[in-house]
Design a protein around this nucleic acid. Structure first.
Lengths: 208, 208
DNA sequence: TCGCAGTTGTAACAAAAGGTACAGGTTAAT
DNA sequence: ATTAACCTGTACCTTTTGTTACAACTGCGA
């Protein structure tokens, strides 16, 4: 089970006891792209850890969406983590964007572990802290920056993330990340192209 | 020390050992209104627990502000909580709005405790979860609702909070809660008055 | 009681964002 | 090769939000 060893290493899990427990209750799952992992208003029963692939987590409201974050290897979604502490319904949506490998752990175990094993405790606490700070940044960004600035931030983050200046996303996908509409993105991108910051082509934006 | 007993009861702290530790390292402090508890870019050294009074926590950006949350008895500010897990600078501001009583705990203890004492663990975890969910709601609200809706939500929350339909805040204070400017709040309130939802007077808004 | 700092109202304008409508491009599947 | 589904560009218009500027009001303290 390479995936489990990979998990142990990535999360700095050192206790043999904990490893044994994870091996016995954890379920390895291959999820194809575009599958829902969590859905708004539905109960979360598993703590999902992303071993490979990518999960997009967002909120929606009628016809609009806004990106919250991506869960990448090796991480967990805070929302499913908070479900481990009190049975709860999801207030977000999560969907794989690529074929994804998960290790799923029934929520009830995670609570015990955080008290029993230092490394698990550290992992969960860190997850909370980082997620909170990320969300705080996102909130500030939304509160104080206009669409064009938010878009540029997003594009630059993508560039660093994927290590390429070519962002392969359609305008409507971008709109759903930024929290606006397709037309606004199209117009904003055109402006950015005129000012020589980007170069546009079909389903692709090049950062200059 | 009534304050400490009050704290133990409110946080469901049952372990005698933990009580002893809190009593020995905790510092009781009376803070007058309008004092900074945490400041952006400054290090957080204490975990502050609000026993009585109220602390306003917000973010700012040049000339704009936006409210994050209030810390009320008996709670702690998540940001100072996350500082207990890794020495960090604050990304928010916190200021007392009333004369406030705090119990301050040096950050290094809080980490140990969360592993050593179940009730402390529970308290910190719950604090994280609730704060995260609150922020998520705020984010969604900001992303999808216009100023008038956000304002009404805020006013209604205040009404419930203080159990009175009279909200005693100036327009510029409201602007800083909502994340907009004074003029916009004035105009929006006038509209709301015309539609018979509120009644305006000096430094007071009555919800009808 | 006077003056001052903070508050409120509002007109006029500017900028940002959203919505409608439609033309035309690209791709993938049949 | 044709079609259907999706993508892009843009003109035009509306709504929302922000800015500037100024007049008038309120309440407190000297």
């Amino acid at each position: 089970m390479t995936e489990f060893n990979h998990l142990f290493k990535a999360l700095n899990i050192v206790e043999d006891e904990l490893k044994k427990e994870i091996l016995s209750v954890g379920v390895l799952e291959q999820v194809p792209k575009h599958s829902f992992i969590v859905e708004q208003h539905k109960y979360i029963k598993w703590l999902a850890l992303v071993i490979s692939g990518k999960v997009r987590v967002w909120q929606e409201n009628e016809d609009r969406e806004i990106l919250l974050y991506y869960v990448r290897p090796v991480q967990t979604c805070v929302m499913s983590l908070s479900a481990t502490f009190r049975d709860c319904k999801s207030v977000v949506n999560g969907k794989t964007e690529e074929d994804t490998t998960l290790i799923k752990i029934p929520v009830r175990f995670a609570t015990e572990w955080s008290f029993k094993y230092k490394s698990w405790n550290k992992f969960t606490t860190n997850a909370f802290i980082h997620s909170y700070e990320d969300l705080l940044l996102a909130y500030k960004n939304l509160a104080f920056n206009k669409v064009d600035q938010r878009l540029m931030k997003y594009l630059n983050a993508m560039r660093i993330q994927n290590n390429t200046p070519f962002i392969k996303r359609s305008h409507s996908q971008l709109a759903k990340e930024i929290g606006t509409t397709r037309e606004v993105i199209s117009k904003t991108l055109k402006q950015l192209e005129h000012s020589g910051v980007v170069k546009l082509s079909f389903k692709q934006i090049e950062l200059l």
